[in-house]
Design a binder for these strands. Sequence first.
DNA 1: CATCTATCGACAACGACTACCAACACCACG
DNA 2: CGTGGTGTTGGTAGTCGTTGTCGATAGATG
Lengths: 134, 134
Amino acid sequence: MNQAMPNVTRNTRQRAEVLALLREVEGFHSAQQLHQMLLARKAGVGLTTVYRTLQLLVDAGEVDSTRLPGGEQLFRRCSQSKHHHHLVCRDCGRTVEVAGPAVERWADQVAAQHGFVDVGHTLEIFGTCAECVR
Amino acid sequence: MNQAMPNVTRNTRQRAEVLALLREVEGFHSAQQLHQMLLARKAGVGLTTVYRTLQLLVDAGEVDSTRLPGGEQLFRRCSQSKHHHHLVCRDCGRTVEVAGPAVERWADQVAAQHGFVDVGHTLEIFGTCAECVR
DNA sequence: CATCTATCGACAACGACTACCAACACCACG
DNA sequence: CGTGGTGTTGGTAGTCGTTGTCGATAGATG
């Protein structure tokens, strides 16, 4: 009856595989895409585990996630650990990480004016990148 | 062979019902919620039609839509016709429409700096409103 | 090594949404 | 005020991303 501290997160092979993959790919990918890539490299990681691991990483702030207009969730390893936003190309999906301190302040201020607390926000900029215009 | 101009949108009872309902409710609702309300008032509008009508209204700019973190799409009649953003309470769903001209300019500018054209953006602010804090 | 328990993963279930397609009803025209 | 055609409807079945289930597995600790 040794009730140690049953609240640790373990270092498993599967989580290492997902992290390793995320370090190699560029831009946003869906959970299913990532799972396919893991299959291709014979990494033996189940789809369910991919979803769970990605969710863990998002919660831990190690991975960004965004949503396509269709509702599908995309993931990407953060290259900046601090808060930032994304400029995404509609056609090729190319992504630029941008920071906007002024926007952060504006959002917090507006929220405060209306009595809101514990404020967060989401901001995505969409457009067509120079490559895809041609 | 009277090929008049087969590209009109018709005024149907169902579309009127959906619009009438949207004028009566406050805040964001899902397509399914709206469909339930229509059922409750015996308005005889199918779920499929609710989805289609809402999409039409969004395209026409008469209705706002946003997405819950879970990916579910929500709809609300615009009270302002011009571009604006939303400040949404996480708990009760209360919504404030806010405008941020500075943010618009910033987004366009950042996008332009990276060679993006045809730029749009999404911005939502989340928080807990004064009511729900207590 | 033994034991505990977080984690895995194949499968089933779920929920939002869409495709399908025959029946319907809006509306311009006669 | 009929009539034709065509945009629209809506029940159902299906798609698709995601999550729940639960016995099996394998880190971590002593």
